[in-house]
Design a binder for these strands. Structure first.
Length: 223
DNA sequence: TAGTAACT
DNA sequence: AAAT
């Protein structure tokens, strides 16, 4: 078996308190394997949450269909359609409020943020992204939250991917950072509005998720 | 405009 | 780069 793109990563530690922390940029860190030991619990929660608010593909305002599927939980959820990007209190599919953000998720996200130097992070919205075969996410900024003092906390589950990490302008060529099952990325402060994205998902199968990657992105949104 | 076409 |  030939070594793959990701085989030189250290083995996952699984604990946010002790997993190895790498600086990516000013205000941005990668915690390798920080949530590995919580993966099955998180995936089980994703199953029950997406039974209430199904994963769905959204249209961008320009009319493009996103290749990743998403859902939300928390007091507000991110949506995109012909009218633009926004956070709203209800799921447009059902008209009902989004499912509550599980307390265990909020605690893990806060612990990750604290490890990255952002004390007191209290997320009120989580975007649940599912990347299937060849799904990707173009370079973008998370800029609809209203509160840019709070960081973004991102959990990776399942198939490995290449995280595209750019800069404050779209023209800066992004670095490609491998993310594997259990990895956590936190960015805020000077890099809070940096462009980022996901390269097309490589083929593969993960024991816990099959041919897909899940990503949980925690935010604090000023309603 | 979190995507895409249409360039180079 | 430009459309929306």
């Amino acid at each position: 078996m030939l070594p793959d793109l990701f085989s030189d990563l250290p083995p996952p530690d699984g604990d946010l308190a002790t997993a190895p922390l790498t600086a990516i940029d000013e205000g941005a860190v990668l915690i390798r394997g920080g949530i590995t030991r919580h993966a099955e619990h998180l995936l089980s929660d994703i199953r029950s949450l997406t039974a209430q608010a199904p994963l769905r593909r959204l249209y961008t305002p320009g009319g493009g269909l996103m290749s990743a599927s998403l859902s939300c939980c928390g007091t507000v959820g991110w949506v995109s359609d012909q009218r633009g990007y926004r956070y709203q209190r209800t799921d447009p599919l059902s008209g009902r409020p989004w499912p509550a953000l599980p307390a265990s998720w909020s605690q893990l996200a806060a612990q990750a943020a604290g490890r990255a130097g952002y004390a007191g992070f209290v997320p009120n919205s989580t975007l649940i992204n599912r990347y299937g075969r060849r799904a990707e996410m173009g370079l973008h900024q998370d800029r609809n939250e209203g509160d840019f003092s709070a960081p973004i906390v991102s959990f990776s589950l399942g198939l490995a991917c290449l995280f595209l990490w750019g800069g404050s302008t779209r023209s800066q060529r992004p670095r490609r950072i491998p993310l594997t099952h259990g990895d956590v990325v936190v960015w805020g402060g000077p890099s809070r509005l940096f462009f980022h994205g996901i390269a097309p998902l490589p083929d593969g199968t993960h024991p816990l998720t099959g041919p897909c990657r899940y990503n949980l992105t925690f935010r604090h949104v000023r309603p």
